[in-house]
Design a protein around this nucleic acid. Structure first.
Lengths: 217, 217
DNA sequence: CCGACTTTGTGCGTGCGTTCACAAAGGCTT
DNA sequence: AAGCCTTTGTGAACGCACGCACAAAGTCGG
């Protein structure tokens, strides 16, 4: 019977062991004093608390590169996510076979959601189509949406939306890289805005404002 | 001259306005009392603080579906990330044109990193290849790595690695969905482990332990 | 069967981040 | 030009989460 102590787990995770024990205690009292936690049992309890022991029916809307990557992602199946439908508007991809599924036309969205009891939808469409798809999903009764399109979706309060921005992590890396470089004195941290700013206000047609585009999608 | 108040920004972001002001004050004193913040100037200052005004040279390793999706992702270019190389080990894709770039063979990794001054690398290879690719990147001098492969990479302390797990957001949605359902009394929150557990210990060949697989990749 | 040892579970103190609240500051109106 | 109004920037209070430290509990060796 393999066991593990809170000390070992904490070291592996890089956190304080007291905090780890307190966190685990929120799930229940699954440890044995003087011994530790039985690995299998603990894994099961955590999985259950996280909802990993249930099966979730997922539909992926938009079968571009990202949709294809997601449909083939092994991490889904092993965590209890069953991709039950791939939908797209492009007649060119409808009918294609992918990871054991046939791509269906977006027109079937409502039918598919209801018949297969889809509980979570993944939007991997172009930004321009995302809100319309989202509205149809909500009308069809989907209450959890994972959005990869670079737009903020508006939904009723009863619907959960999570947005994944693939470039945010890249920005965080760049931020740290910048700090490293600053330490080296490689780049000066001077404010170069004044020049641009003044020229922007002076010239009547402000045709270039690259720093504005930098923060939105 | 368009301006915005901390109150408006805070409402839009769903945070407290005092916190927003304090956060902005860490970048400097860019507001005007009685008026608010000039939008353009503030955007520029935030962009600069985040490192978005610099250009970052990025290489994408692994041109499967995910690599293709990333190479075509519009959010990169607009945030100052310039994809300068696409590398893959598969002779079938080497030579292909993608988003204005030609896919090159992974053998050129060291040359490409040095000649084009790559500062951030994105690993979108299968899990089995990720660590080897990572080691070569580190040897070539890359100090920031964004990892999409479902493995924990080991690197020297001087290298920053960020791991993106595409299913984590899905898990969070499932977690909340579970809580909603629990509220309805749709699923009972009983502990169904005991049965499985006992049968596992009783039967000598523990050939099925689905809940163990649930937490690793 | 008992005592020593190990490790959990948790009450309590501390420190940090968030929020409140207000003085300082700048613009706008009369 | 002067006073009013708006909004920033920040000192001070609050609250929560983290970490310490220890009693409770259970195991293992003798």
């Amino acid at each position: 019977m393999a066991t593990v102590s809170s000390e070992e787990l904490a070291a592996a995770a890089g956190v304080n062991s007291a905090k780890l024990r307190k966190d685990l205690s929120h799930l229940g009292s699954y440890g044995t004093r003087g011994v530790g936690y039985e690995v299998e049992y603990l894994v099961y309890q955590i999985s259950r608390a996280l909802g990993l022991t249930q099966d979730w029916v997922v539909a992926i809307i938009g079968v571009g590169n990202l949709g294809r990557a997601l449909s083939g992602y092994g991490g889904f199946a092993s965590r209890g996510f069953r991709v039950a439908a791939l939908l797209d508007a492009d007649p060119g991809v409808v009918g294609a076979r992918l990871s054991g599924l046939t791509v269906e036309h977006i027109d079937k969205l409502e039918t598919v959601v209801k018949d297969r009891e889809v509980s979570i939808a993944v939007i991997a469409t172009p930004a321009s189509a995302a809100q319309a798809v989202c509205d149809r999903l909500v009308d069809a009764g989907v209450t959890s949406i994972l959005n990869f399109a670079p737009v903020v979706l508006s939904v009723p309060e009863t619907v959960d939306v999570r947005k994944v921005d693939l470039s945010i992590e890249l920005q965080i890396l760049a931020f740290h890289e910048q700090r490293k470089a600053a330490g080296n004195g490689k780049y000066d941290d001077y404010d170069e805005y004044e020049g641009k700013y003044r020229s922007l206000r002076a010239g009547d047609p402000p045709d270039s404002a690259p720093y504005i585009q930098a923060v939105d999608a």
